[in-house]
Design a protein around this nucleic acid. Structure first.
Lengths: 142, 142
DNA sequence: TCAATAAATGCAACAACGTTGCAATAAAGT
DNA sequence: ACTTTATTGCAACGTTGTTGCATTTATTGA
């Protein structure tokens, strides 16, 4: 797998998606890669040296459109965002991972999964599945 | 299964949850049971004879807390709500159903499922799964 | 390297969604 | 029927996210 945690990679990521590499965007990307897991905008906000609400929203929007990050919505919580581990394109975010939220430390993990469960429903044609799990993560399950 | 589509049931539902039966609450419940599927607040709003935004929010909040309805959040969409088909309590909404969104008619269904898939992740203790599917529903898959 | 062009940023203002305090009203219990 | 308790509705506010426009920064090409 490609290394996704250094500045060179970040710049290449921006270049490969055909968007200009600005200090703001690089900083946001570095924050996402520093946290390996999904984080809400409130964390990005705190980490940013120079925070601007509007610019952040626009940056996130562009990153989502370009498939650099993806959005994780868990009922009743802030939206969380994480760097896409596979190649995503704008239309089909067919991740082979599930989103796991630890009920103790509240961390949201994108967990790669080998055997993605298949579900067949009578009368429905299932084309895509999105799975969210809750429980205890490695660190909290002691 | 209990019948969940008549006024008597609605009143009993309110009684059994120990909340007073007001015209507003009964009307909201009837709207939910009229639509068999999950609906956003915008639909409830249109169906209400006398709509009050604040009262609706509070009613929804109470219904959620009492386990009368549950909330379905699909990334990037309005929240949807549907009557709980099984007994829910406030803490554990361990539904044996998945949420299915038809990509054509946009309807969101709560689909009961017999064999709920089991997922085991190395290093994670999975306690609960929430599954959202997209595809084509019975009516649109022709 | 530097000017010309294109894109990103920041401000002000707005819109949607949701909440809170408080007074008025309706439901429940006696 | 009356008292108590809960619900409703209004005004006002907070949060989240967007848009138009002027300014600043990045990119391109000579």
């Amino acid at each position: 797998m490609q290394q996704r945690c250094n500045k060179v990679f970040m710049v290449n990521l921006l270049k490969s998606k055909n968007i200009s590499e600005t200090p703001f965007r690089k900083e946001v990307l570095e924050i996402f890669s520093k946290y390996n897991n999904a984080i809400p905008l409130s964390i990005v906000e705190k980490e940013l040296k120079k925070y601007n609400r509007i610019t952040l929203y626009r940056t996130i929007k562009v990153f989502l459109e370009k498939g650099i990050i993806h959005k994780i919505t868990i009922s009743g919580e802030d939206s969380n965002y994480a760097i896409c581990q596979e190649e995503c394109n704008t239309d089909a975010h067919r991740h082979q991972h599930i989103h796991f939220k630890c009920k103790k430390c509240k961390t949201i993990y994108c967990v790669e999964i080998n055997e993605f469960p298949a579900i067949t429903l009578p009368n429905y044609k299932v084309e895509q599945l999105e799975i969210q799990a809750t429980g205890l993560c490695e660190n909290c399950n002691v």
